[in-house]
Amino acid sequence: MKKFINSIDNLLDESLSGFAKAHADIIQLNTQPHFVRRNKPTAPGKVALISGGGSGHEPLHSGFVGSGMLDAACPGQVFTSPTPDQMLAAAQAMENGGGVLFIVKNYAGDVMNFEIAAEMLDCPHDTVLACDDVAFPKTHSTGRRGVAGTLIVEKIIGAAAESGADLAACKALGDRVNIATASMGVALTSCTVPALGKPTFDIGENEIEMGVGIHGERGRERLTMRSATEIVDYLSGIIDDDLKPQKGQSALLHINGFGATPLMELHLIYELASRFWEKRGVNICRSLVGNYTTSLDMAGCSITLSLLDEELLRLWDAPVHTAALRWGC
């Protein structure tokens, strides 16, 4: 393993400090405890949106802090959920009379740590659990994982909160986006966690791991390598079975790279996935292609389909100004 690192112990600190400097126009870094917060004051009564999770998925979540999206993000160690003091401090710093909405990817560690923070918080608050990964059935013992669809939840709630929606409305909206969003991932390689220095799993030159999450955990099955079209049809088929979009349904198609897959391949995946749904009469009216919810240096990608009605489309299109997503301003 070769990585740009001084020492495992301060990797996260040095990186966050660089992130904060590079985006000092929109965010600032709080230390002790760590969270990334917006620079600019929000409108009184605005719901404060707090997310967070293990690091190694950048730009998620810190890259989505800013006007029109999150108020703060709490970065944990690599692939390790942040701790309750971070969420609590972030919530207290950003609360502005509208209460706090936590947006949490559904992993045991994240859920429990956010839960502890929520229990300690003495202002109105609620939690949206992102659980868009359809590699497992809804009935899975821990529920579905939150993966690349999380940013769609964050963007849409972010727009609503910015325009004055209250806590209950934001919570309901988040749950609605969640239900309308499904993702499936495939890994071509494992990632390498810096502290460990070797790939999390072994995988052969002719194998792929289907239905992976975003922490280098193995997926739901291992298959032999196959053509891009076959891979896309497999992933999209599972998503389509889950969401069962109607003919004429509008949707956002998000192709997310896990870190080491060239944009050229992601655009190829976009092409094939959009063909898949065009054939089924789905109207792919919005796109997002790139590395947004990464898994360190993993080669692979996920496909996310998010069904949009007029309200969701309007909220998706609303101005956003963060390090990683920016439009309309």
Binding site: G54, T80, T83, P84, N113
Partner: peptide, 15 residues
Amino acid sequence: MMTAVGGASGSLYGT
């Protein structure tokens, strides 16, 4: 444990 560990085990040992 709750503030230094993180992850599932941090919240559980903290608890």
